[in-house]
Design a protein around this nucleic acid. Structure first.
Lengths: 192, 192
DNA sequence: TAAAAACATTGAACAAGGTCAATAAATAAC
DNA sequence: GTTATTTATTGACCTTGTTCAATGTTTTTA
């Protein structure tokens, strides 16, 4: 079950078998049924998760009740509320499974321990955070400059397999547009 | 001149005097006149910079000619194109001084060297990248959910000293709205 | 397999914000 | 100090996307 994680780590850094075992042993597996929550607003996020099966959405509920999806996490992606997890602060986010899912969880304490103990892991996460930061910068620039049509087309082109697994409510909420407007966009696009 | 940098590092991690000297010696100081560029689109970003004086804007020029500001950097902030610097790829960004400025620059090679040589520095930058990532997540959610009025009010409240040093063209470009609309917002707000 | 729930589509009215053009005010350059 | 240049304001009109409500369609659930 932890094969995915082993593979993921090995792709980025070279650890001895022993280090790799030690790292992976710090994770505990958890199954999460569709529609149930890994984290709810108001809680403190005590885990960082590596998804081995299924699909999660990480989202915020605004004061007017509107849900805004920050990101999705599928197989071989990490899922956490970075702010709440690193600062042990109260979370403003929800993390919910959109399919029956499985995830490997590491606690804050164990992660800090492993940073001290296996410095290459610190490198792994530094590089990872850099990559997600670059992607987020790109996404923010796109959101501010591109039209909704283009955002949608880019999304289904960039994440073809993921977009198959999502309904239009989820996609609209990720793109920051209303699902009614997404429906109109789809009509316009697919008629052409 | 490197006192700011020494202080900045010391606040986050504890290095020996020797390590601190070694780290700071890798930087070379550079003065940048108002309106001149530290980086232009099409170049490869060969530096990461620590601003000791002045003000920079990091921005992209979209195909229609519209400028979108990704972020500003003032004293004690870092400035680089993270994507271009880490991947040695061609930059899509411009980095321009908005005031007469001074910046301490470290090269890609030296930064990689220091990661190997002083692991605490790796920690420093991991934590730093995490923080900026959290801030960017917040900014993206705000951009997607808040009205332009609110974005502007939040900006001048969050960065009071910075917003004093910027004209409304720059602020509008950062918020992703037209400067004409910002002008109307200001009228509406300050009349109340 | 029937009822309930969730999801998708469509119309009509509306709001937020953009574009273009003109003018005024403030800075910078000489 | 007086032009140039940059920045700010304002008006009129336009576009993109929202809201609300109704209806149809699919998927769950019992």
């Amino acid at each position: 079950m932890k094969d995915n994680l082993r593979q993921y780590v090995s792709k980025s850094i070279s650890l001895s078998d022993r280090e790799l075992d030690e790292f992976c042993d710090l994770f505990q597996s958890s199954t999460v049924k569709k529609k149930s929550f890994l984290l709810k607003e108001g809680e403190v996020c005590e885990f960082e998760g590596f998804v081995t099966k299924g699909l999660f959405r990480v989202y915020r509920v605004h004061s007017n009740g509107v849900e805004q999806i920050l990101y999705f996490a599928i197989e071989n992606w990490w899922v956490t509320d970075l702010d709440s997890f690193t600062n042990a602060s109260v979370s403003k986010l929800h993390i919910q499974a959109l399919e029956d899912s499985e995830v490997l969880l590491i606690s804050r304490k164990d992660k800090e321990y492993v940073y001290e103990h296996i410095p290459k892991i610190e490198k792994l996460f530094r590089v990872m955070t850099q990559k997600t930061h670059i992607a987020l910068q790109q996404r923010m620039m796109d959101n501010l400059s591109k039209t909704a049509d283009q955002l949608y087309l880019d999304f289904i082109e960039k994440y073809p397999q993921l977009s198959q697994r999502l309904n239009n409510l989820q996609i609209a909420s990720y793109l920051g547009i209303s699902h009614e407007f997404l429906s109109r966009i789809r009509k316009k696009i697919f008629i052409k």
